[in-house]
Every structure is written in C-alpha cells, then in structure tokens.
C-alpha cells in the first residue's frame, strides 16, 4: 500500500482528507509535529506528500526547499492562493504538482495517481490475470488473440484496473474521462462500458465488470 503524508494545519480538512485517501486504498498519515517537520518526513519515508503552503512555524515553500536538499519524494502543493506566480514558484522549488483549494476530490485523486505513476515508472506495465495491456496502442492481448479498445474504453478499463476489487463510481470514471479531454455524457459512458464488456467477453473474460446498482462498477 502506498503511503501518503498529509501536511495541513486545518484539522477538519486533515481528517476528511485522511478518510478520502484511505477509502481509495492509500495509507494516509498526518504530520503531528510541525516543529520538526523535516525530521518526521525523513523518518516516515512516505511515497508522496500533500503539502499545504500555509502551515505553522515555516511556510510550505520553505519546508519544500529544505526537503529537496535531502529527498526526492514526490510533493503535491496545496494552497488557497490561485495566482499563476505562486504556482510557478512552487514548481521551481521542486513541487511535482500544484492544486488549489477548494479542489474536486476526484481530481485530487487523479493527480495523486499521476504523480505516483510518474515517480515509479516500472509500474507502467499493466497486467490483469493473463492479459497483457498496451495502454499506448489500446490493445489487450491474450495469447495470440487481441482486442483493440477505443481511447474511452481504455481509460475506463485502466481506471478500473488501478482500483481493482473496489467499487468505482460513475463520477470517478467520468472525471477521469473528462480529465483526458473526452467530454462524454452519461449515456455515452453506459454505452462505452457495455462495449468494453462485450470486447472482454470475446477473449473469455465475461462478467468481470460488475454493476453495483446506484453506486458504480467493480472489476473483480
């Protein structure tokens, strides 16, 4: 399980963020002592840090600068200041991404996923049972058989695969699709999922995507 450290001074946000991350299969820890934040980060060795700019004792930017002297852990800066200059500055201090409050939780999760994916490139190769998945070409191979997925179908399938054995809501799938500039509507999503199902059936994987009524889908 990947460990995400939340550095944020608002208690309610910290708690809700923790719940959100844990519900999505991450191990979320919080920074308790802002006084020696740096030591605690280095001790906990998180896989990713969500760092708020307005934290006690020292600013998030300063903490990031000090952290970068010692570690390359991915950092996503979180702030309520949406000025272009602040963003550019954070990136120059070594942040991997930058998100402004108030953020859409689904988008935050997508950003986390993207940053984590970038930081460990070897997990780029997706495998499901005996299926070999080529994301770039949109091809799924089983032995000598192969199916070709459209861009939308591939986005849906890889999202389900990244959240295997957990219910994925339509909202999450929709956010990922729109995030990839596929601005489809509800009906189109339903159509895409049923096409994906029938394509998977062709290579012998029938009913692996189950519908959970009024909640979403689950890839078993």
């Amino acid at each position: 399980m990947q460990k995400i450290m939340i550095i944020e001074d608002d208690e309610i946000i910290t708690q809700e963020l923790k719940d959100l991350l844990q519900n999505n299969g991450y191990l979320a820890i919080t920074l308790t002592n802002f006084n020696n934040a740096l030591e605690e980060i280095l001790k906990e060795k998180p896989d990713l840090i969500l760092l708020d700019i307005n934290i006690p004792y020292m600013s998030g930017e300063l903490l990031l600068q000090n952290l970068r002297k010692k570690s390359n852990v991915p950092v996503i800066m979180v702030t309520s200041n949406n000025q272009e200059t602040v963003e550019a500055l954070s990136i120059s201090y070594g942040a991997d991404d930058y998100i402004t409050k108030p953020y859409n939780p689904n988008i935050l999760l997508l950003r986390i996923m993207a940053v984590l994916k970038r930081s460990n490139m070897n997990s780029n190769k997706l495998i499901y049972h005996d299926l070999e998945i080529n994301l770039g070409k949109g091809i799924i191979k089983k032995d000598d058989k192969e199916i070709i997925l459209t861009k939308n179908e591939m986005i849906i399938f890889s999202y389900l695969l990244n959240h295997q054995n957990r219910i994925v809501t339509r909202d999450e799938l929709m956010t990922d699709l729109w995030n990839n500039e596929e601005f489809i509507n509800d009906n189109a999503l339903t159509v895409n999922i049923s096409r994906l199902r029938s394509k998977l059936k062709e290579i012998g994987y029938d009913n692996i995507i189950e519908t959970r009524k009024k909640v979403g889908y689950i890839l078993s």
Partner: peptide, 18 residues
C-alpha cells in the same frame, strides 16, 4: 479573507464527498 474562506469551503467539499 478569500484565502481563509476557502479553507472551510474545502473542508465542506471534502466532507460532502466522504
């Protein structure tokens, strides 16, 4: 003020989502 009001707003959105 806007930056401050965004903090409770963010926590509302997160709470709603959870």
């Amino acid at each position: 003020w806007i930056h401050e009001v965004k903090v409770p707003l963010s926590s509302l959105i997160l709470t709603f989502n959870n």
